[in-house]
Design a protein around this nucleic acid. Structure first.
Length: 247
DNA sequence: GCGACAG
DNA sequence: ATCTTGTCGC
């Protein structure tokens, strides 16, 4: 691929575009970042937790005028109730680069997790985990850096950089369709769609959970296309941001 | 050859 | 992701 601005060939990230932000990171080169991602991906665990998952902590970040509005919401699976919405603001330092979302968002996610009020059984992030060219999206990075081994599930609306191909599409039940996302002979994620909709969502392991359990949990949260915790958190975030901007 | 791009 | 108007369907 070629960068239109610099007329440079590049893989995923244009070095010229990225260079000014390198000093904002803890790395000395893009190659070092890739090495970090490759090595870290091997530390991801896909074994299930011993205890049952009921309370989900969902984290989501939206940007407006270089300000990150980072929200947390808890979702009780059994009662299907959301509670304890909180929002915090951070200044944006690094912009979005495909495959490097962690540089922009990881510290914010970790800060949110530190301030959390209840002990969640699982985290849900609106980002990729293993569904990533280096098998290490920000949901996985977050999952590795948590102080405790808590399951992390990543959910996105898009398949990052065609990081995998969709195979084995089949009916999950009367209403839902599920498929595998395969990348270099590895099952890196699942595709999940509601039957009457054109497009579905992508689910991948962040850390400390199997893909099968992740898909089971997410499929039960689909009142609409977007899993309930993410959808409800998004609504709350939008309300708060709108109020703030109108002042 | 062209376009591909989590949020 | 953001910015942004109307419009269609339940």
């Amino acid at each position: 691929m070629k960068c239109k601005k610099h007329n440079l060939s590049y893989k995923y990230v244009c070095p010229e575009c990225f260079q000014p932000y390198l000093k904002e990171t803890a790395f000395s080169s893009l190659e070092e970042i890739r090495e970090y991602q490759r090595l870290s991906s091997k530390r991801i665990k896909t074994t299930n937790p011993k205890s049952k998952i009921n309370l989900i902590a969902c984290l989501k970040i939206k940007y407006y005028n270089n300000v990150a509005y980072a929200g947390t919401i808890f979702y009780d699976i059994k009662n299907q109730k959301a509670k304890n919405f909180k929002i915090r603001k951070y200044k944006q330092t690094i912009p979005y680069f495909p495959t490097l979302l962690f540089l922009r968002d990881l510290e914010i996610y970790l800060n949110l997790a530190e301030q959390i009020k209840f002990n969640p059984d699982c985290y849900l992030l609106n980002a990729s985990g293993q569904l990533h060219p280096f098998l290490f999206g920000v949901a996985s990075d977050f999952g590795l850096k948590l102080k405790e081994e808590i399951p992390v599930i990543g959910v996105t609306k898009k398949n990052l950089y065609k990081s995998g191909k969709l195979i084995n599409l089949k009916e999950l039940n009367e209403f839902k369709i599920v498929g595998d996302i395969e990348f270099k002979n590895h099952l890196v994620g699942k595709y999940l769609s509601i039957k009457n909709l054109e497009k579905g969502i992508y689910i991948s392991v962040g850390n400390n959970i199997s893909l099968n359990l992740a898909i089971k949990i997410i499929s039960n949260l689909l009142k609409y296309k977007i899993p309930e915790p993410i959808r409800l958190l998004n609504i709350e975030l939008n309300k708060t941001i709108k109020n703030e901007i109108e002042r």
